[in-house]
């Protein structure tokens, strides 16, 4: 049976384009403000939403997402608020994944988290610091509740590790485009295309590329070789900048809408990989 997430990938493939995956942390600038921003990005063309669970020790994140997560935690956001956010965004019809470090799920209880996420309408999770070797409890809980457990590969991953990760991933495989933390980059390196090609030899699952994509042009380039384009820091930065400048919530939502529309246009005009 195809999940909502699988259907989106299939449909995009038929349209000759990539899916656009947009990340924002729950609870930033407030729980309701975060929900409004996520809805705005869906309205402007984001296909799949990654709801970030703000965590105290985000070792994979650069300064933009760190700052937003810190602010969200200072504002008192909890796992319960994250689940409420998932429910509100899933109501738009877009598949919603929770992006989280492992300890918050570990503490909540994997079985309980899977049940509550599924009940909220969530499609799955992305767990960047949960390695395949430690994933058994989460795979079991995800399977029981029909959630897609998305795992990551990196340019440094051996072919054997790519097979291991691809073998347990559900929904898609997340290919980290570079060796580094989240954040915008001037260019997406050649490592990403090579990595995607290596993943394709290991699995039929769609492959989405994240880390460093921030503009429509970059999205178009990545769409030339990947099934999904994941954008995080660039979107978060729109909210952070609006908070800092005191531009107001309406201006922040306008900014999110403009960037999401630009990125959505990008994934619809893929640059052939050979170009």
């Amino acid at each position: 049976m195809q999940s909502r997430l699988d259907e989106r990938f299939t449909a995009a493939r038929e349209e000759g384009r990539s899916l656009l995956v947009g990340y924002l942390p729950a609870g930033y600038p407030t729980v309701d403000g975060g929900i409004a921003a996520m809805r705005a990005m869906v309205a402007a063309g984001v296909d799949v939403v990654e709801v970030g669970l703000p965590y105290s020790d985000p070792t994979m994140d650069g300064p933009v997402i760190q700052d937003a997560a810190d602010a969200a935690l200072r504002g008192g956001v909890t796992t319960t608020d994250v689940l409420r956010t998932v429910e509100a965004v899933a109501a738009t019809g877009a598949p919603v994944l929770v992006m989280t470090y492992w300890n918050p799920i570990d503490r909540y209880g994997p079985a309980r988290f899977a049940a509550d996420l599924a009940a909220a309408g969530g499609a799955g999770t992305i767990t960047p610091d949960l390695p395949p070797e430690e994933s058994a409890p989460w795979l079991e809980a995800s399977a029981e509740h029909g959630l897609a457990p998305v795992f990551l590969v990196a340019p440094s991953s051996s072919d054997a590790r790519i097979r291991l990760v691809a073998g347990i991933s559900g929904g898609f495989v997340y290919a980290a485009s570079l060796m580094g933390v989240t954040g915008t980059r001037a260019a997406v390196g050649t490592q990403a295309a090579d990595l995607v090609a290596r993943v394709r030899t290991a699995t039929e699952l769609p492959v989405a590329v994240g880390l460093g994509v921030s503009t429509g042009a970059q999205a178009a380039k990545v769409a030339g070789f990947a099934d999904g384009v994941i954008v995080g820091s660039a979107l978060v930065k729109v909210l952070v900048d609006a908070q800092r400048s005191g531009a107001g919530d309406a201006a922040a939502l306008d900014g999110i809408g403009r960037l999401a529309a630009e990125l959505a246009a990008g994934v619809r005009t893929p640059v052939p990989a050979s170009a």
Binding site: D129, A154, S156
Partner: peptide, 20 residues
């Protein structure tokens, strides 16, 4: 061999660091 001391230890890091 996987770094476990009973149920403790292990390697909870991003995939990018696994090769290292």
């Amino acid at each position: 061999p996987a770094g476990h001391f009973g149920r403790f230890g292990g390697r909870f890091v991003p995939e990018a660091l696994m090769a290292a």
